[in-house]
């Protein structure tokens, strides 16, 4: 019997079913699994892991739990991967960028967070664990502006010149957009500024000019730039890998709990099932929104403002915390009151 079949039958839960399958393939004279056989064994093996073969509900439950745990895995993997992302430029590299945008204007810069993220509450890890992050939680950025914030002159002309300078420095520069208040009657934008984005080497630079900022001197305009990091492809890949691994773990753990309680009395089954369903009510919406954000991030193209899991650490934190406590109740019930699945013996 080939190693391929021996590996594939491990998709099934431990037990004599693996031996039965190997016997079937051996008797059929099969040596090497075909792709169709492999898919068939993986599909039915993972289903067998859930126990309760006549139930469709357990498949729905396991799928939803796998999506939630997959989202958690994607967030954890991406969060860890971000630790290895290239740092923001500093020293001479940052000075060169500042001078490219605001030449001769003694530009200043300020970073809004020491680490990867900005949290106005500056909470410690312990506080985050208990309360989550403040609602403004986002990736940290570097603000750049000219000394005094205002530049004398014509903002469309200055914007066009800034674009040309950045192109010359090797940045990919977008077209400048007209910005300003919108006239409600006509829907037209009251031209009072320009904005454009430039990208280079994993960095994104958003440049903006405005004339309707309070205290703008006559004949001058307000100008600022914000430096962000683009998400490297390998961080997205790490997120996808985390998603797959944790989704599989979620499926296997659900299967373990389901098999342990499938022959249990009603109370034990209820104490396992109902907390898990309630946990899904609390967790699934935010997991789904997070996964949509994860998919949209590389498609949108620009730098991420907040990580795709930010909702779960801000507004959704309380729901998430309670959800995982309820999952824990289910698992503890299955571990304490459940029993390994009954082994059918022949008559």
């Amino acid at each position: 019997m080939s190693r391929g079949y021996r590996l594939l039958v491990r998709a099934y839960p431990p037990g004599r079913r693996r031996g039965e399958l190997l016997d079937t393939f051996a008797e059929a004279g099969r040596v090497r699994p075909t792709a169709r056989e492999a898919v068939n064994l993986l599909r039915h093996g993972l289903r067998a892991r859930l126990g309760r073969p006549a139930s469709r509900g357990v498949v729905v439950l396991a799928t939803l739990i796998a999506l939630v745990t997959g989202f958690v895995g994607a967030a954890v993997a991406a969060r860890i991967a971000w630790e290895f992302a290239p740092a923001y430029p500093s020293g001479a590299r940052l000075e060169a960028i500042k001078e490219s945008v605001f030449p001769g204007l003694r530009p200043v810069s300020e970073r809004n967070g020491d680490g990867l993220f900005f949290d106005v509450g500056e909470r410690s890890y312990g506080e985050v664990f208990l309360y989550g992050h403040d609602e403004d939680f986002a990736f940290s950025t570097v603000w750049i502006g000219p000394d005094g914030n205002f530049i004398k002159g014509d903002y469309p002309a200055w914007t066009a010149a800034a674009q040309q300078r950045l192109v010359a420095e090797g940045w990919q520069v977008s077209d400048a957009e007209v910005t300003g208040a919108t006239w409600i009657a006509t829907g037209e934008i009251d031209d009072s500024g320009r904005a454009f984005t430039a990208t280079r080497g994993g960095l994104s630079l958003s440049v903006q000019t405005e004339t309707d900022v309070v205290d703008t001197p006559a004949g001058s305009f307000y100008a600022s730039a914000e430096l962000n990091r683009l998400t490297p492809g390998w961080i997205t890949a790490a997120g996808v890998l985390g998603l797959l691994v944790f989704a599989l773990l979620g499926w296997l753990i659900t299967g373990w709990a389901s098999r342990r309680t499938q022959d249990a009395r009603g109370t034990v089954r209820s104490l396992t099932r109902e907390p898990a369903v309630l946990a899904l009510v609390l967790l699934f919406p935010q997991a789904l929104l997070g996964l949509i954000g994860m998919v949209r991030e590389p498609l949108a193209g620009g730098p991420p403002i907040a990580p795709f899991w930010s909702l779960s650490l801000t507004y959704g934190f309380g729901c998430g915390f309670l959800g995982f406590l309820l999952f824990a109740v289910s698992l503890i019930t299955a571990a304490v009151a459940g029993r390994p699945a009954r082994v059918e013996v022949s008559a």
């Binding site: 039965e20 056989e37 068939n40 067998a48 073969p53």
Partner: peptide, 16 residues
């Protein structure tokens, strides 16, 4: 019948 399909059906029929 594929082996995986057969045993999944047998499990279900046994449960029923």
């Amino acid at each position: 019948l594929q082996a995986g399909t057969l045993y999944a059906a047998l499990d279900r029929l046994h449960a029923e």
